[in-house]
Write a protein that binds this DNA or RNA. Structure first.
Length: 849
RNA sequence: GGGCGGUUAGCUCAGCUGGUUAGAGCACCUGCUUUACACGCAGGGGGUCAUCGGUUCGAAUCCGAUACCGCCCA
């Protein structure tokens, strides 16, 4: 412990590593695998990407989860914060591939086995970064039970789930249109796609009717896909084409003919009103094609090049083919128009390349059986989403869910437990017996394994002690964008495989934006590194700041809030210092607040009970911002500004020492879940503390210590002192000057000495000639020190005050003169208005006296 | 195109089951080596609560419209 006499400031950088080490050594981060999950408290961290580094979202989410975990641990529950990382298929594979390319190699050159080995090496070397960074934040997760979504045990859970769903008939293989990412050469999910505005050229192309009676003109931004057209569609209500439905056209550049079909999807006011249908290369065309049983002709391959089916254009890239097709059409005189066209185009969030929609053979999970129970779980309250407004987004998404494409053409990930031999397909946890079996090359979507996180981390499908003790978990805290991607899938998988919801509460936190309102991102250069912020302001400050600035909507990063947290840590440090420099090593453990105890002791102990009750409720309601700011208000606005100032005039006897240390210990314990480092350090130094604060009980409010009379008295005292200080300031009285005064107020008599000390009044030298009179609760304070007053300043102040009072009086009089108000407003409100008016009139009269 | 959210002090945000003199942090002004803290203390200035209309005795708060900003879905 630092020597308090010499240290005037809290130094986070010195304290944090030592305190973190004491916590780790205590073993309290590691929940005991015993007891029931209903009695225990557990949170599964949303596993960060193993390639990742801590960003503000992680820091906020870590602060939230740690506050919850520490709160419940202090409340005596056996707690477990399940920690680990996600193998992040595409992101990790790309990361390692980049290195190989730098080395002049490639994954193809290495071969699958050596490549995967290389990724594991990479993970060994760099995969621990984000876990270490969480430690800097003070996160009290279970570092001993760290899990990885590719662990051997985890892999077994994944295979089990795959096989069970396959046996259910929920997993199947099909030709389907997927979002093909040419960059990562894999299918990716809808949520990994982002739409961007792009200006393309809209080409109009003539398709001649086979009966020679004319032509149909279609509009498209992808002329090269016409080689895969299998129909032309028009809206059935479109008069322009009424006679053409059922007729045939010749598809230019090929020797094929297409039928003109009718489908409601076609918009009559877009383009020419006639739509070329390419089922294998456009999502909408795919739907129409399936409705009409059209052929799916694949003309663009997975390598982004035109296939054999593209005839003369085979081998060209899609872009080259577009140029060639347009040229050929122009030559044949079939190009009817071209104009710039701006529209939203899908791009891969992973590789940044433009998505090529194409039909390929993929594995899918049907959602028909899985989604309804997950909707039900939220509707009936087994899973509560906070804030509740997010529930609708969750259920809306699940209600419209489509089959989930789970195969990815990657090497890094869970390889599907599927084997082929000629026409046979085998699905099983272990490889099939016999020769000639070839294993499926594809791996599973990373989210497939992540969806099992809350139970696969605990040893499922075995009923391990960890599983029994901590599943289902209690809370899942996450950002909004993960609500579908992950939360919904966890609920579906949890219900299907464990029969229980994986958590009872979902807390959806703010997204922290850059101070200018843009997204925080590395590529934009708008990111702020939480570790830098911790280095500069301390982990407590960053935690407090993030919690204080967060809300139910997105917020801009506010360094001022972090600095507020830093100030709070320092304030607590110095408040403790003040008490500790005045008490000995041995103090009584209970506050002394019975009859006859000083009013300020009774008051602060009473207020503490109320603040503890409020903070407890706010944590339970996930109102972290209110809790953090409420704590700040208590420490600054009550403990330091008033209580510590009020006791400065007293001798630190045993009673005061016991009470002050009790208040200090309770405040440190109350603040610990939010700002753990400074509170832990101070706890050790306060007499009466036992063991580490992280393992100490959270304060329980004691009704018996709530003291309304003390509350009224100190409340009046504060109003009086504030009024008198304001008067002194307005009258330009020298700060040090003692002013002769007499207090005429029954409400304040008992506490006159305290008031006199705080305002530097000399109650003994009142001359009897009042030079001024100040309204205070229950009466007035008369002042008799004319010399000390700056007459000019005083007059200005009074003039200003008078006009303010007159304005308020007029307003109150107006209200009370309004018959409707008196008749219709609640009686106590009217009475309150009258009382206010009376008070204001008294004050105005005193001003004029 | 559909849905949701926002617009309150110079900045970042609370308040929004209708009734307070509309708050906080930071910034700003004045004063202060006051028996912990200048990462401090005391006092103070600053807001027609986006705009327009409605409901009501009473609207930052409820309803409708408009403008601008943002997010999600198609």
């Amino acid at each position: 412990m630092a020597d308090f006499a010499d240290t005037r400031r809290f130094e986070p950088a010195e304290v944090e590593p030592q305190v973190m080490q004491r916590w780790r050594d205590s073993g309290l981060f590691h929940g005991a695998a015993q007891g029931s999950s209903s009695a225990n408290y557990s949170i599964a961290i949303p596993p960060p990407n193993v390639t990742g580094a801590l960003h503000m979202g992680h820091a906020l989410n870590g602060s939230i989860q740690d506050t919850l975990i520490r709160f419940h641990r202090m409340r005596g529950q056996n707690t477990e914060w399940i920690l680990g990382t996600d193998h992040a298929g595409i992101a990790t594979q790309i990361q390692v591939e980049k290195r190989l390319i730098e080395e002049g190699s490639s994954r193809e050159e290495l071969g699958r086995e050596a490549f995967v080995e290389r990724v594991w090496q990479w993970r060994e070397e760099f995969g621990g970064t984000i876990i270490e960074q969480l430690g800097r934040l003070g996160a009290s997760c279970d570092y001993e039970r760290e899990r990885f979504t590719l662990d051997a045990g985890y892999e077994r859970a994944v295979r089990q789930v795959f096989c069970d769903l396959y046996e259910d008939g929920a997993i199947y293989r099909d030709q389907y249109l997927v979002n093909w990412d040419p960059g990562s050469r894999s299918a990716i999910s809808d949520v990994e796609v982002e739409e961007r505005e792009v200006t393309d050229t809209l080409f109009e192309i003539a398709y001649p009717l086979t009966d020679g009676s004319g032509e149909v003109v279609v509009a498209t931004v992808r002329p090269e896909t016409m080689l895969g057209d299998s129909a032309v569609a028009v809206n059935p209500s479109d008069e322009r084409f009424a006679g053409l439905i059922g007729k045939r056209v010749k598809l230019p550049l090929t020797d094929r003919e297409l039928e003109i079909i009718a489908d409601d999807y076609v918009k009559t006011d877009f383009g020419t009103g006639a739509l070329k249908i390419t089922p294998a290369h456009d999502p909408n065309d795919f739907e129409i094609g399936r409705r009409h049983g059209l052929e799916e002709i694949i003309v663009i391959g997975e390598d982004g090049a035109m296939t054999e089916l593209a005839g003369n254009f085979a081998g060209l890239t899609a872009a080259e083919a577009q140029v060639a097709v347009v040229a050929a059409l122009r030559e044949q005189g079939l190009l009817r128009g071209e104009e710039p066209y701006t529209h939203a185009v899908p791009f891969s969030h992973r590789s940044g390349e433009r998505i090529e929609p194409l039909v390929s053979l993929q594995w899918f999970i049907k959602m028909d059986e899985l989604a309804p129970p997950a909707i039900e779980a939220v509707n009936d309250g087994r899973v509560k989403i906070h804030p509740a407004s997010q529930s609708k987004r969750y259920t809306d998404w699940l209600e419209e869910i489509r089959p989930w494409c789970i195969s990815r053409q990657l090497w890094w990930g869970h390889r599907l437990p599927v084997w082929y031999r000629d026409e046979e397909t085998y699905v099983g946890i272990e490889a099939p017996e016999g020769d000639g079996w070839v294993r499926e090359e594809d791996v599973l979507d990373t989210w497939f394994s992540s969806a099992l996180w809350p139970f696969a981390t605990l040893g499922w499908p075995d009923k391990t002690p960890e599983y029994e003790a901590f599943y289902p978990t209690d809370v899942l805290s996450t950002a909004r964008d993960i609500l579908f991607l992950w939360v919904a899938r966890m609920v579906m998988m949890g219900l299907r495989f464990t029969g229980e919801v994986p958590f009872s509460d979902v807390y959806v936190h703010s997204v922290i934006q850059a101070p200018d309102g843009r997204r925080m991102s590395k590529s934009l250069g708008t990111g702020i590194d939480p570790i830098t912020e911790i280095d500069e302001h301390g982990a407590d400050a960053v935690r407090f700041g993030l919690l204080a600035m967060s809300s139910t909507q997105d917020v801009r990063y506010s360094r001022e809030r972090v600095e507020q947290g830093q100030a709070l840590a320092n304030k607590l440090f110095n408040a403790s210092r003040f008490v500790l420099l005045n008490v000995g090593d041995e103090v009584g453990l209970e506050p002394v607040v019975g009859v006859g105890a000083p009013v300020e002791d009774r008051w602060i102990v009473s207020r503490l009970q109320q603040v503890v009750a409020e903070t407890t409720e706010q944590i339970e309601q996930f109102e972290f911002s209110k809790a953090a700011l409420g704590l700040y208000d208590f420490v600054y606005g009550e403990l330091c500004d008033w209580y510590l100032e009020l006791i400065k005039g007293r001798e630190f006897d045993d009673q005061l020492a016991a009470t002050a240390c009790y208040v200090l210990r309770s405040t440190l314990a109350l603040a610990h879940p939010f700002i753990p480092f400074v509170t832990e350090q101070l706890w050790e130094a306060v007499p009466g503390s036992d063991g580490l604060l992280i393992g100490a009980p959270f304060p329980l409010p004691d009704e018996a210590l709530i003291d309304p009379e003390a509350g009224r008295r100190v409340g009046d005292l504060i109003v009086a002192v504030t009024a008198l200080r304001s008067w002194r300031s307005g009258a330009n009285v020298k700060p040090g000057a003692q002013i002769g005064a007499r207090i005429n107020s029954a409400a304040l008599n008992a506490d006159a000495a305290l008031i006199a000390r705080l305002v530097r009044l000399d109650l003994g030298v009142f001359t009897g000639d009042a030079t001024d009179s100040i309204v205070v609760p229950g009466g007035t304070v008369e002042i008799s020190a004319g010399d000390a007053i700056d007459v000019e300043a005083h007059r200005r102040e009074r003039t200003q005050r008078r006009s303010a009072l007159e304005g308020e009086i007029a307003r109150a009089e107006g209200k009370l003169a309004n018959e409707s108000f008196v008749a219709k407003a609640p009686a106590d409100l009217v009475a309150g208005e009258q009382a206010k008016l009376d008070r204001l009139r008294v004050e105005l009269a005193a001003l004029d006296a």
